[in-house]
Amino acid sequence: MTTIVLVHALGSSSRAWQPQVAALGDRHKVLAPDLPGHGGTPGPFGLEPAAFEIAELIAAEPDPVTLVGISVGATVAMLAALDEPSRVANLVLSGGTAHAPGVALQRNLMRLMPTGMITALMSGMYAGGRPELKTQAKEDLRTAGKRAFINGLGELAALDLRPRLTDLQIPTLVLCGERDKENLKPAEELAATIPNARLEVIPEAGHIWNLQFPDLFTEKLTDLIA
């Protein structure tokens, strides 16, 4: 039985993986932890503490895992895989980036916004464009709070993993939604630099597309493991 570890986005929670947990749980062991400062896990959020928690989790598994990250969760997954490369059989990076200095502007704008405005602006994307999931997305965004975004985006703006990508000697699937324009070039860079990586651009998909097209996202994971 393969163990799949799912790493959610900044401002989200493990609940955002519910479709994949439900679909894969009967055939695989599926772990979807809340990152620090999110869901039921105390904070504050930081990239390194989050990566440490994921690295500890995969190190405790008896066999190497399939490690999946979306958005900033993909960056956390890369950091964890660099810490524990022998414990990762497959790596899946969706909408992720190794270097994002442009998010410093986004961080500065968020500093000026109240949490309620951030929640209102981002809940649609974090629900995968599905109105029935907006309440859950708003709850998760409020739990993480403004501080998680300021911390996380500040650290992401300063991070540059590009020199270390060639150390990821792990079969890697890089995914990006066709409509996730901001992350298409970073996805191409990841696929071109990680030695054993391939890129798939998903038609009509946005950023948090595991909720937008849950069956298709699950299919990509199933095909990779098979």
Rank of each mutant, 00 (worst) to 15 (best):
A55W: 00
E53S: 15
R130Y: 09
G96I: 03
A81W: 04
N196F: 12
A144C: 15
Q20N: 13
A197Q: 09
M113G: 01
V68N: 03
L175E: 00
V72A: 10
P49K: 08
L79Y: 04
L6M: 12
L141K: 00
I170A: 02
H8C: 09
C176Y: 00
T143R: 13
P19L: 05
L221W: 00
G116P: 03
T2L: 08
V103H: 01
T135W: 04
A127K: 08
A148Y: 00
E182I: 06
V65R: 04
V68K: 03
N196M: 11
A32H: 02
A98M: 05
A191P: 12
A192L: 12
E139H: 14
G39N: 06
T222Y: 03
A50D: 07
L79M: 14
D26L: 07
N196D: 14
T115G: 08
G40Y: 02
G39T: 07
G177S: 10
R130Q: 15
T119I: 15
E189V: 15
A100N: 07
A74D: 01
A74Q: 02
P171Q: 02
R142E: 08
G39I: 01
E53R: 14
L159T: 09
C176V: 15
Q212L: 05
M125W: 00
T97R: 06
E219Y: 05
K146E: 06
L211S: 10
T75C: 08
L47G: 00
A120V: 04
L35W: 01
K181D: 11
S123C: 14
L153F: 07
H28A: 07
A77I: 07
A32F: 04
N108V: 03
P42N: 08
F45G: 01
G154I: 06
A187E: 07
R162I: 09
G25C: 05
R142C: 01
P33H: 02
L121T: 13
R87E: 13
R198V: 06
L93M: 11
H99Q: 10
A77G: 10
T143N: 13
V88A: 10
G25K: 04
A100T: 10
R111F: 03
I225Q: 04
A191I: 12
T143G: 11
